[in-house]
Computed example of a mutant assay.
Amino acid sequence: MAKVSIGLRGWRFDEDEVFTDEGEFRPLDEVPDDTRRRLIRLTYLQGKPCDACYLIHGEAEKKRCNEAELVYGEPMEEVLLCADHEADFLYWFREAGGSAHRETEAFRDEFHEWFASGERAPEGYGGLEHVDTDVDALPTPPDPDELNRRLNESHGGTRKRIDLRTGEITYEEWNGGDEDDEETTDDLGDVDLGQDYPTK
């Protein structure tokens, strides 16, 4: 079974779990839970800055940060990296004790602390060899609106909502209209709406 990265390199997906035979994204209800959670999380991570760049430049100089190209770790504790800082992360993970934090809530924070203290990979430390047959053809996950539309197809009476930060899916009653169309009433007490009231 072939593996493919979507949106960012790093997380690998089984093509058969994500795509139909025609090459379209499968309906989310047909995608295994962990894969679905990662796909949903990717829609939030697209376009975010590299964590290492951000630690160097800070919020005030955020525009100087490279856009993330890689993602490592588990959803919600992932590390985002540009190609320039991948070797630093891999050195931390392989040689500086980072692997001890794999799949823990401290994973991202531990790397951030190590990097922020000035630690770096030695000069010439090798990264991973990424084999890209066609970088421009790297599939992009559906945008949030499209994800919600697909998730709610054929679910009359209820609507699924996606939290793009966590990947969690919740259900709520739905009348088929927009949220703004829902009728709301306020308790106005003894106010007579037909009465003219002074403005001063």
Rank of each mutant, 00 (worst) to 15 (best):
T43C: 13
K48T: 05
A60K: 13
H57E: 08
D34G: 08
K63M: 10
L42D: 02
C65A: 02
K48R: 12
Y54M: 13
L39C: 04
Q46W: 12
T35E: 11
R41H: 12
A52G: 08
A60T: 12
L39H: 03
K62L: 11
P49A: 07
R37E: 14
I56R: 08
H57Q: 06
C65R: 00
H57Y: 15
C65I: 00
T35Y: 10
P49N: 09
G58P: 09
C50I: 06
E61M: 12
R36K: 13
K62E: 12
Y54D: 08
H57C: 04
R37P: 05
P49L: 04
T35D: 08
Y44G: 05
R37I: 12
Q46L: 15
Y54N: 10
L42H: 04
H57G: 01
L39I: 09
K48G: 00
A52Y: 04
C50T: 05
R38Q: 10
R41G: 06
D34P: 00
C53Y: 02
T35L: 10
D51C: 01
Y44R: 13
A60L: 13
T35H: 07
I40L: 15
K63P: 00
R64Y: 14
K48I: 01
L45W: 00
K62C: 07
R38E: 06
H57A: 06
T35I: 15
K48L: 13
K62G: 04
R38D: 01
K48P: 00
L39R: 02
R41C: 12
R36W: 05
G47N: 05
A52F: 05
T35C: 14
A60Q: 14
Q46I: 15
G58C: 13
K63C: 08
C65L: 01
A60H: 11
A60E: 15
L45A: 02
L55Q: 10
L45I: 00
L55V: 07
R41N: 13
C65F: 00
A60S: 14
D51H: 06
H57L: 03
D34F: 11
K63R: 14
L39M: 09
G47P: 02
C53W: 01
C65Y: 00
H57W: 14
C53D: 08
D33G: 06
H57M: 04
H57P: 01
R36A: 12
Y54P: 01
D33A: 14
P49H: 06
Y54R: 12
L42V: 06
R38W: 02
T35W: 10
I56W: 02
I56K: 07
C53Q: 03
I56F: 05
G47E: 05
C65P: 00
L55W: 03
E61W: 07
Y54G: 03
R41Y: 08
I40R: 08
L55T: 07
E59L: 13
D34S: 12
P49K: 04
L42C: 05
D34Y: 11
G47I: 03
R36I: 04
Y54F: 15
R38P: 00
T35A: 13
C50D: 03
R64H: 14
Y54A: 10
